[in-house]
Design a protein around this nucleic acid. Sequence first.
DNA 1: GTAGTCCTTCCAGTCGCTGGAAGGTCAAGG
DNA 2: CCTTGACCTTCCAGCGACTGGAAGGACTAC
Lengths: 132, 132
Amino acid sequence: MNIKDAAEASGLPAKTIRYYEEIGLVSPARAANGYRDFGAREAAKLGFLARARSLGFSIDDCRALLSLYEDRERASADVKRLAEERLGEIDRKIAELEALKVTLSDLVHRCHGDDRPDCPILTDLAGPEGRA
Amino acid sequence: MNIKDAAEASGLPAKTIRYYEEIGLVSPARAANGYRDFGAREAAKLGFLARARSLGFSIDDCRALLSLYEDRERASADVKRLAEERLGEIDRKIAELEALKVTLSDLVHRCHGDDRPDCPILTDLAGPEGRA
DNA sequence: GTAGTCCTTCCAGTCGCTGGAAGGTCAAGG
DNA sequence: CCTTGACCTTCCAGCGACTGGAAGGACTAC
């Protein structure tokens, strides 16, 4: 399986797959002509990586997940811990964005949005001195 | 006002302020000894930038907001449009994270999390073949 | 004079790719 | 046999928005 087919099968761009090899996430075999040759195992790892990345796991997380995935003796507790940490990050990020949204939408609602130069968004961004 | 005082006043690291000068967001005067000398106007711009960045505006957004802020003839409609676009991005990002959270927390709940090797999170990440 | 804190510039690294150049390989068609 | 075009290879550079560190100059206090 050449890189293009591996890309189509996994949904990852070929460039990304080469990058993943460079950083040691996958190690495809090489054909006589120097082309990468992906077997079932490496192709499956690419799919695994694509899914884990789409769930927001960092490359380092993926490295850990992959070694757990490859390890027949792995403990599911390790995997669960990683996933829970990731869940915590997601919650924190959502809370942060919600707070941002409140502030910004308040600003937007207070802005008349016509062609007058007076704008509460800018006044607010200018800080205390700007408002004084 | 030297860079350290400007940093304390704005809440931005000195490194970041130098970077902002490099990319043309601020243009502090220079003292005879070559030190940056921030006047009230440049210091206010730094505060403005710190607040806009903390609301998640990109550097390019900040550049636009800053020119509107500096422009006495600016139309508040332009500012409102930028803020609304940003609000849309925030909403999209929140929705994306919520979806991720559903998937991941489902996985976490289905994982028994003990030392048995069988883990539904990995099975799921492995894809259809892994489940078959 | 010297210790310590500030300031300067420049270079390199972060993360996870992404784009592009230069060149090798292969299968199909004439 | 030759060409076309799609594929493959490596390497180098760049994105955004900083951040760290080295090397060296400037200033303040004792």
